[in-house]
Simulated assay, not measured.
Amino acid sequence: MNYVVTVNGEKYEVEVERVGGGSSSLSRRPPERVSRAIQAAPVAQPVTPQPAVPTSAPTASAGSVVSPMPGTVLDVKVKEGDAVSVGQVVVILEAMKMETEIVSEVAGSVAAVRVKKGDAVDTDTVLVEVK
């Protein structure tokens, strides 16, 4: 049986054979090597999602971590006085049924945590202040 399969917007024609079972009147032959069939179509590499990082925060200071989108705070990973490094997850937001890790763009210590678990936030809301 021939089928057309679409992968990442590209169409590929594939042939599917039934292996084993079926009528005894069919001649049986060993299946072809799977690796040959896979080589015909490019294999998409898995995409590792990058944490959402705010690009600009007009109402926040340089050490503020702000929400890049509206959502609900699922978890706050730091508390006042904690040391944070660049790229460290400080808050986890849920937006459109997806969890997004919000990271610090600066190293320092947490001066203030402005949200708590369950809070609804808008875009550019200050979540954590780092000094």
Rank of each mutant, 00 (worst) to 15 (best):
A41C: 13
V19F: 02
S35N: 11
P54S: 14
E94I: 04
A40K: 15
Q88K: 11
K116V: 11
A52C: 05
G22K: 04
A112H: 01
G63F: 04
L26P: 00
A57L: 08
V86R: 10
P42Y: 02
E32C: 00
A83Y: 02
T72F: 00
A60V: 05
V43N: 10
S109M: 03
S109E: 14
V89H: 03
Q39M: 13
S67E: 06
Y3C: 12
Y12W: 13
V90L: 04
A60L: 03
V110G: 06
K131C: 01
A112C: 08
L74M: 14
V47R: 09
G71W: 00
D82M: 01
L26D: 15
P51D: 10
A120W: 02
G87L: 03
K97V: 09
E10H: 10
D122I: 00
V130K: 02
A111C: 03
K11N: 14
V16K: 05
T72N: 15
V78K: 01
R33T: 10
V14L: 12
M1W: 04
V7L: 15
S23F: 00
G108A: 06
V128N: 03
N2I: 11
V16A: 13
P54N: 12
V73T: 07
P68V: 10
V14A: 12
T6E: 15
S25A: 11
V7D: 10
